[in-house]
Simulated scan of single mutants.
Amino acid sequence: MDRLRTAYQTMCKAMPGGWPAMAAALGFSKDGLENRVYERKGQAVSVHEAMQMQAFSGSSRFAEAVAAESGGVFVPLPDIDAVDDEEIQRVYMELVDEVGRLAREWREATRDGEVDKQERKRLEAIRDAICTKVTQMNHLTFQVFCKKGQ
């Protein structure tokens, strides 16, 4: 739940005008918003409110926090207007680079027979980057090579 609270705080800070602007956009007082974020007086941020906060802040922090709390990762799909095979190849090469980076980092992290907190954090970040690249590559591939409606 700390991840969710951190996401709410981050989204409020990212909103132009900060907490007061976020509260106003949601139709709350600043105190009312803080009560929900910090779960005071039996209040909490609803999923609908969190989605609005995410949209207002122009971020994906709520989705990322929910995914992490659920034991997964949030993978944003690329915004595409026009995509071609060259773009898919670019993403594919970035994926290959990430896999190479994982191999190097894994060897270094396991060399002494123990993965410490910082090594784990680096390995998890690379894992997330690989998941993102694979998803993006598939999404782009489907946009270019699948028949419409499939």
Rank of each mutant, 00 (worst) to 15 (best):
S46K: 06
A7V: 05
G18F: 14
F74K: 07
Q118K: 15
E86P: 01
D31A: 10
Q136R: 12
V99Q: 01
N35H: 09
I88G: 03
K133Q: 03
Q89Y: 06
F28M: 13
Q52H: 05
M22G: 06
A44H: 04
F142I: 06
A50R: 09
D84L: 00
D116A: 12
V75H: 00
M93C: 02
L102A: 09
C131L: 13
E39F: 00
G18W: 12
K133F: 03
T110P: 09
E119R: 12
Y8N: 05
E87I: 01
R101A: 12
K41D: 04
S59M: 07
R122G: 03
A7K: 12
A103G: 09
D85S: 07
A21V: 09
N138C: 10
K121M: 06
A14M: 14
G42D: 00
M11W: 13
A125N: 11
A68L: 07
G58E: 03
K117V: 14
H48A: 14
V134E: 02
L102D: 00
L33C: 02
A103F: 07
Q52L: 03
D84K: 03
R90M: 07
Q43R: 14
L26R: 08
M53D: 05
Q43W: 04
A129V: 00
K133R: 13
N35F: 03
L140R: 08
E69H: 04
G71M: 08
K117P: 01
V37H: 06
Q54E: 15
L102N: 01
Q9M: 07
R127V: 08
I80H: 03
V115S: 13
R111G: 11
E64H: 05
V45H: 00
A125H: 11
Q143M: 12
R107W: 07
M22N: 05
A44Q: 00
A65H: 09
C131W: 13
T141M: 04
Y38D: 01
M53G: 07
A63D: 10
R90I: 04
R111T: 10
Q54V: 11
L33N: 02
L33Q: 05
E64G: 04
D2K: 12
Q9I: 09
M137D: 03
D31K: 13
P78H: 08
Q9N: 12
D84I: 03
A7E: 06
A7R: 11
A21S: 15
R120A: 13
V144S: 06
K133E: 00
I130Q: 03
E87V: 06
